[in-house]
C-alpha cells in the first residue's frame, strides 16, 4: 500500500492539477491511510484474531479501550515486580496508543474527504508537493514509519508479560 501510495503521489506531481493529477493525489491519501490501517489490523490480530474483522471506525475506540486496559494490566504486573524499565515502557506505550488512535482518526477523516468530498480541492504547490485539508502529502507518506515505531513499542510491552 505504501508503495502504491508513493507511486500515485509521484504520478500526481508529474501530472499536476492542469493535467489531471488531482484524482491521483486523492488516491495517494487513500492508500497511505490503508497502509497504516493494515499495520494496526495486524497488531489487533496478534492480540485477538476477532478484532481484525472490526469496522474501521471502531479502531480508535479499541486502542483507547481494550488495548489501554491490556497495557495497564502489564503496568500493574511491572509495578508489583518492581520492574521500573517495563513500568516506564508501559507509560510510553499508553501514550503511543493515544497517538495512534488520534492519527487513525485523522487519516480516516482525510481518506473520507479524499473519496467523498471532491468540492474540497487538493492544493498543489507548483513544485513537488500537494496537500489536502491542511495535511501535506509528505506527512501522509511518513504515517507508516511513525505507526510502525508506535506499534513496535506497544507490541513489545505486551510481549514482555505474555509468557
Amino acid at each position: 500500500m505504501q508503495q502504491v501510495g508513493l507511486h500515485l503521489q509521484r504520478e500526481a506531481v508529474n501530472l499536476g492539477r492542469a493535467n489531471g493529477g488531482e484524482p491521483f493525489a486523492r488516491s495517494s491519501f487513500n492508500r497511505y491511510y490503508y497502509s497504516i490501517f493494515l499495520e494496526v489490523r495486524e497488531l489487533f490480530a496478534s492480540v485477538d484474531t476477532s478484532w481484525a474483522t472490526l469496522p474501521h471506525k471502531s479502531y480508535p475506540e479499541i486502542l483507547r479501550g481494550k488495548f489501554k486496559k491490556r497495557i495497564k494490566k502489564v503496568q500493574e504486573i511491572a509495578r508489583r515486580g518492581e520492574d521500573n524499565i517495563l513500568y516506564a515502557d508501559c507509560r510510553r506505550a499508553n501514550s503511543y496508543l493515544l497517538n495512534l488512535a488520534s492519527l487513525m482518526e485523522r487519516a480516516y477523516a482525510l481518506r473520507v474527504i479524499a473519496d467523498y468530498n471532491p468540492d474540497i480541492a487538493v492544493e498543489f504547490d507548483g513544485a513537488d508537493r500537494f496537500k489536502l485539508s491542511d495535511t501535506k502529502i509528505s506527512e501522509a507518506h511518513e504515517w507508516q514509519s511513525r505507526v510502525r515505531i508506535w506499534i513496535d513499542s506497544i507490541r513489545s510491552v505486551i510481549l514482555q508479560a505474555d509468557a
Partner: peptide, 19 residues
C-alpha cells in the same frame, strides 16, 4: 533507534521462568 534490539525485561524473565 528504530532498529534497537528487543531484550527481555525482568517481568519477561520471571514469566518465562514461571513456565
Amino acid at each position: 533507534l528504530t532498529t534497537k534490539e528487543r531484550l527481555p525485561t525482568d517481568t519477561a524473565l520471571l514469566s518465562s521462568i514461571r513456565q
